[in-house]
Each structure stands twice: as structure tokens, then as C-alpha cells.
Amino acid sequence: MKSFLRDNPTIAFGLGLPLLLVTLFLLASGLPTLLVAPPQNDLLFATEYVNNQAGLQIAVISRSVQLIDQGSRTNDHRPRIWRYHVKTGAVQEIAFVLPASHTKKTPSVRTKPQRIDLPDLQGVEVDSSSIAPDGYEFVLNTRSDSRLFGGLFYSSGYRYGAALRKSGRHIPLPSITNQYYRGRTHFIGWVSP
């Protein structure tokens, strides 16, 4: 085999170059995972969130997450709030109970907004900066199932996903809701240690 490849350098080059390129691409894609430190701050985000001025609003006020019922609602959109634990990779839903006036079939009309308690976030300080203190950022992206060739070829496997990103390192968040509604994902903030 060695003599065949030595006598035919074009064939050796034709076989060796693609293998070398694949190896280089695999190494280059894995380097950020080895060189960039893992995230340190838990993340809070909402799914199924519709930014409707008359509905439920999520805000960070004085480093505290607040869920505010703005009054009359004309639809049944109810956001789900999640906490992503960076140490374990687990996602925990932050449960809340809507007031009785909010669950009526006819829209309730109030003159002032009503705050809804979030017991799981009691005493949790949140930084609503777009970039975490450790340098990671929350991104929403459309990715294809064909990761190697990306947009070069047609692929019907497009999905929407949320991820943490820093200096080339990309950590996808677990898919917790219907992938086609990821456009309604809303960044809330980073949990301060």
C-alpha cells in the first residue's frame, strides 16, 4: 500500500487532503469548548411571551423579576417563565398563579396594574444586562439540522433554538416548548450569585 501511494502522489494527495480538512474543521469547532470557560450565571427567560400592553408583562425592576397584569386581556396568552441552571443544564419552570379576576372569560378592566407573585424567585437578584458578568449572551437563532453544510444545501429541518454564546462557544438550551413558537422566547436576565 505504501509503495502504491508513493508511486501515485496525486491519489495520495486526493485522499489525504479531504481527511486533513475534516480533521482541521473538527478540531476548530471543538476548540472553543476547551478554551472558553463554562457559564457561571443562571439564566431566566420566558416562552410563549406576547408583548401585549394590555396583557401580562415581565419586567426586571430594582433587580427583581416582576410579573404585572396590565388589566384587560383580550386573549389567553400566558407566558411560562424558566430558570436555566448552568451547573447541571437543567431547566426549571417558575410557577405562578393568576388572580381569579384574570381567569374570567370576559376581559376584566382595572384602573391600575396588579403585581403577580413569583414565589420561586423571592429574594433572587437579577441582572437584566444583555451580556452576563461572565461574558455570555443569550441568543435566539435558526439552525438547520445539517450543521456541517449549513445553508449550502436545502434542508427542511429548520428549528428555532435558544443558546448561550461566548467567543465561539455555543451552548444550546434544552428545547422545552414547541420548536415552532420559539420566536416568542423572551430574555429576562441573569441570576446574580
Results as ranks from 00 to 15, higher is better:
residue 111 T to G: 13
residue 144 S to G: 08
residue 5 L to D: 01
residue 16 G to Q: 06
residue 122 Q to S: 15
residue 172 P to E: 12
residue 173 L to F: 04
residue 39 P to Q: 05
residue 10 T to V: 12
residue 91 V to D: 04
residue 108 S to Y: 12
residue 184 R to E: 14
residue 3 S to Q: 12
residue 141 N to D: 15
residue 93 E to V: 11
residue 36 V to P: 01
residue 177 T to C: 01
residue 25 F to G: 03
residue 29 S to V: 10
residue 89 G to I: 05
residue 103 T to W: 00
residue 53 Q to E: 13
residue 54 A to D: 11
residue 142 T to I: 13
residue 170 H to R: 10
residue 55 G to Q: 05
residue 187 F to Y: 15
residue 118 L to Q: 08
residue 163 A to F: 04
residue 148 L to N: 10
residue 110 R to F: 11
residue 151 G to P: 05
residue 142 T to F: 14
residue 91 V to A: 10
residue 36 V to T: 07
residue 139 V to A: 13
residue 117 D to Y: 02
residue 137 E to D: 13
residue 3 S to V: 07
residue 7 D to P: 07
residue 151 G to W: 15
residue 100 A to Y: 04
residue 97 V to P: 08
residue 85 H to K: 05
residue 162 A to R: 10
residue 158 Y to T: 06
residue 14 G to P: 02
residue 7 D to I: 08
residue 118 L to A: 02
residue 172 P to H: 00
residue 119 P to Q: 06
residue 127 D to G: 04
residue 178 N to Y: 07
residue 4 F to C: 05
residue 146 S to C: 01
residue 73 R to M: 14
residue 164 L to W: 10
residue 66 Q to D: 02
residue 48 E to H: 12
residue 52 N to L: 11
residue 95 A to I: 08
residue 92 Q to Y: 09
residue 76 D to R: 14
residue 32 P to I: 05
residue 178 N to L: 01
residue 16 G to P: 01
residue 56 L to K: 04
residue 100 A to I: 10
residue 156 S to H: 06
residue 52 N to S: 13
residue 65 V to H: 00
residue 1 M to L: 09
residue 158 Y to N: 13
residue 33 T to I: 00
residue 152 L to K: 02
residue 58 I to M: 00
residue 159 R to D: 03
residue 14 G to W: 06
residue 19 L to E: 03
residue 169 R to W: 07
residue 12 A to M: 04
residue 93 E to M: 11
residue 26 L to G: 13
residue 186 H to W: 11
residue 193 P to S: 03
residue 53 Q to I: 06
residue 119 P to I: 03
residue 145 D to H: 12
residue 124 V to M: 08
residue 104 K to H: 11
residue 38 P to Q: 12
residue 143 R to E: 14
residue 16 G to M: 09
residue 26 L to S: 12
residue 45 F to Q: 11
residue 59 A to R: 05
residue 174 P to T: 03
residue 29 S to P: 00
residue 33 T to L: 08
residue 61 I to S: 00
residue 43 L to D: 04
residue 102 H to E: 14
residue 74 T to R: 04
residue 43 L to T: 05
residue 54 A to E: 10
residue 157 G to Y: 08
residue 70 Q to T: 00
residue 163 A to R: 11
residue 35 L to S: 09
residue 73 R to G: 09
residue 111 T to Q: 14
residue 184 R to Y: 15
residue 168 G to Y: 10
residue 54 A to Y: 08
residue 102 H to I: 04
residue 179 Q to S: 08
residue 53 Q to C: 05
residue 106 T to E: 13
residue 91 V to I: 13
residue 40 Q to Y: 03
residue 10 T to W: 09
residue 32 P to C: 07
residue 3 S to F: 06
residue 93 E to I: 04
residue 187 F to I: 11
residue 21 L to V: 14
residue 169 R to I: 07
residue 36 V to D: 02
residue 38 P to I: 07
residue 111 T to V: 08
residue 52 N to I: 02
residue 98 L to A: 00
residue 139 V to H: 14
residue 176 I to H: 00
residue 151 G to Q: 09
residue 162 A to S: 14
residue 20 L to S: 09
residue 189 G to T: 07
residue 64 S to K: 12
residue 41 N to T: 10
residue 11 I to H: 01
residue 135 G to K: 02
residue 191 V to E: 03
residue 186 H to L: 10
residue 56 L to H: 04
residue 21 L to S: 02
residue 34 L to I: 14
residue 24 L to I: 12
residue 160 Y to S: 15
residue 5 L to G: 06
residue 115 R to Y: 07
residue 139 V to P: 01
residue 1 M to P: 00
residue 96 F to W: 07
residue 83 R to M: 07
residue 41 N to R: 14
residue 113 P to D: 09
residue 175 S to M: 10
